[in-house]
């Protein structure tokens, strides 16, 4: 897997490019799926006590698939999602993106992957309170580009952002600060922000957890349509079975292990 270290950060966004690097040296133990985990283990320390959260989880998510991860609080579902999205590093185990190991990449490449490949949606929306909706949505692009190149392309990017904001139904709220938006609007804004980078995988951590059921359903419809029309791979963590059932597959976690993998409706 030594090639994975040599990935040019500018190419990591294109999964085909990653693939072409990896294809030269297929390994025996190559899991299938767009994003997959192998024997993931993770534990946290609470004071002196080691608390295992994940104890050998193997999940594979195919391209264009909508997978929900359900489980009770403390079952490790959020941790699994964070590990997949490179927000954290596993103690043991490997994570593959398009057959390419990504969990041991250097910091810079991990930052690049988060920016290019993954889109994140959080339960608490996590918009930056100082920025307007438009600026929040543009933030990933600002991070990706240098000051100069952002300035050069600012019109195109603004257009793109406006388009996406309109798509999530917030066209009339561009200039508002997050504090002036409702929960549903905030989550739509967060989705818009996740989509602006044209990610291949959308990681959603309890996207409806903080919303009433009607708004939650709207958000779920939006995610489902994204999955259906844009062929976006979605991994969603939830504790609500009725929400989880809207996905293609449901992965059930219990005490850090996979309890069952169901086909949803």
């Amino acid at each position: 897997m030594s090639q994975t270290q040599t990935i040019d950060p500018s190419d990591v966004g294109k999964s085909s490019a990653v693939k072409s690097v990896v294809n030269k040296q297929e390994t025996v133990k190559m899991p299938k799926g767009q994003i997959s985990t192998v024997a993931l283990e993770k534990s946290y320390f609470k004071g002196q006590h080691k608390i295992p959260v994940l104890r050998g989880v193997e999940v594979a998510v195919n391209e264009g698939e909508f997978v929900s991860i359900v489980g009770q609080s403390g079952s490790g579902k959020s941790t699994l999602l964070h590990l997949m999205g490179l927000l954290d590093t596993p103690d043991v185990g490997e994570i593959f993106l398009d057959g390419d190991r990504i969990d041991d990449l250097p910091e810079k490449s991990r930052d690049q992957l988060r920016n290019h490949v993954f889109g994140f949606i959080f339960q608490f929306y996590h918009l930056l309170p100082e920025l307007s909706l438009l600026e929040n949505v543009l933030a990933p692009l600002m991070i990706r580009h240098s000051l100069w190149s952002f300035w050069k392309q600012r019109r195109a990017m603004r257009e793109q952002a406006c388009e996406i904001i309109a798509k999530v139904g917030l066209g009339h709220r561009m200039k508002h600060k997050p504090s002036e938006l409702s929960g549903g609007e905030l989550q739509r804004a967060a989705i818009a922000r996740a989509l602006i980078t044209r990610p291949t995988v959308l990681l959603a951590d309890e996207p409806t957890g903080n919303l009433d059921s009607d708004t939650g359903r709207e958000i779920m419809d939006l995610l489902a349509s994204l999955n259906e029309h844009d062929r976006l791979t979605i991994v969603m963590v939830t504790h609500d079975d009725s929400i989880a059932r809207q996905a293609h597959r449901i992965v059930r976690l219990k005490e850090g292990r996979i309890e069952a993998v169901d086909r949803a409706a």
Binding site: G85, L87, E107, K108, D111, Q112, L113, R114, N115, H116, F120, H126, L127, L128, P129, A139, P140, I143, R144, R193, T197
Partner: peptide, 15 residues
């Protein structure tokens, strides 16, 4: 929290 968000969006430590 904001720092976490920025990092999740791909901002590096240097940034």
């Amino acid at each position: 929290r904001d720092i976490g968000i920025l990092k999740a969006l791909g901002a590096g430590s240097g940034g």
